[in-house]
């Protein structure tokens, strides 16, 4: 564990807590993409299958369960709990049907694992989750574009979610530099870079709006 990875995990935790706070305080899911949450749940469920096969640490196991539980709760809240259910506007969260993200990532993961010769289902699903996570934020970014003006807590939720994987990139640099036996996984680096790159323009408008004060508004 290193400071970058810990900061990244804490950023991810903060993002989930801020999203929960935002849902509770605004009593609606307007401006929040349910699709993004569902994609993240698929990411966690396919990535953390080793929960049952490999024990790394209490922290690692606890966080995996916490991510799956919190994301499941958020999806349940928006889908089934009032007032979120009646206020959720699926037509505003219509970009990127889940299958159009899942299918290419599944194909790419299968291909990558064939090339690498790692054919265990756990490895293939793990690789699939690495690719899928890069796309998971796309529906949320489109919902932000739709509503243009970004509500304060929603802005923080997206910012910390983007910062988490950006900090992981620093963690990979650190590990490749300091850990003698660390084996590189270029698929993870590329996917993490693409994922973080998708946030770049949001980061820009977020930082500018925080620096100059005023509302966070995204250009059309």
């Amino acid at each position: 564990m290193n400071i970058f990875r810990f900061a990244g995990d804490m950023s991810h935790v903060v993002s989930i807590l801020v999203l929960l706070l935002r849902l509770r305080s605004s009593k609606s899911a307007v401006g929040i993409s349910l699709k993004t949450q569902e994609l993240f749940l698929i990411v966690f469920v396919t990535r953390y299958l080793d929960l049952f096969t490999t024990f790394y640490s209490l922290y690692n196991s606890f966080m995996k369960v916490a991510y799956i539980a919190s994301t499941t709760y958020i999806i349940w809240m928006i889908r089934f709990q009032e007032p979120y259910k009646s206020k959720y506007d699926a037509s505003q969260d219509s970009f990127l049907h889940i299958k159009f993200a899942v299918a290419p990532c599944a194909g790419l993961a299968l291909f990558a694992c064939l090339v690498k010769g790692e054919l265990s289902p756990i490895d293939i699903l793990w690789t699939f989750s690495i690719f899928l996570e890069a796309l998971a934020i796309v529906p949320q970014l489109f919902v932000l574009q739709r509503y243009r003006e970004v509500e304060n807590l929603t802005g923080h939720y997206v910012f910390f979610l983007g910062a988490y994987r950006g900090l992981y990139i620093l963690n990979w640099v650190y590990r490749s530099y300091y850990e003698q036996f660390y084996r590189h996984n270029w698929l993870v680096y590329v996917s993490g870079a693409v994922q973080t790159a998708l946030y770049v323009d949001f980061f820009y408008y977020y930082v500018v709006s925080k620096y100059y004060g005023g509302k966070l508004t995204l250009p059309t």
């Binding site: 990875r5 995990d9 991810h12 080793d50 490999t54 790394y56 690692n60 966080m63 995996k64 991510y67 793990w126 992981y168 963690n171 990979w172 590990r175 850990e179 036996f181 660390y182 084996r183 590189h184 996984n185 993870v188």
Partner: peptide, 10 residues
């Protein structure tokens, strides 16, 4: 042993 690349991460 060789830390399984990124498998021990979240």
């Amino acid at each position: 042993g060789a830390a399984a690349a990124a498998k021990d991460e979240l």
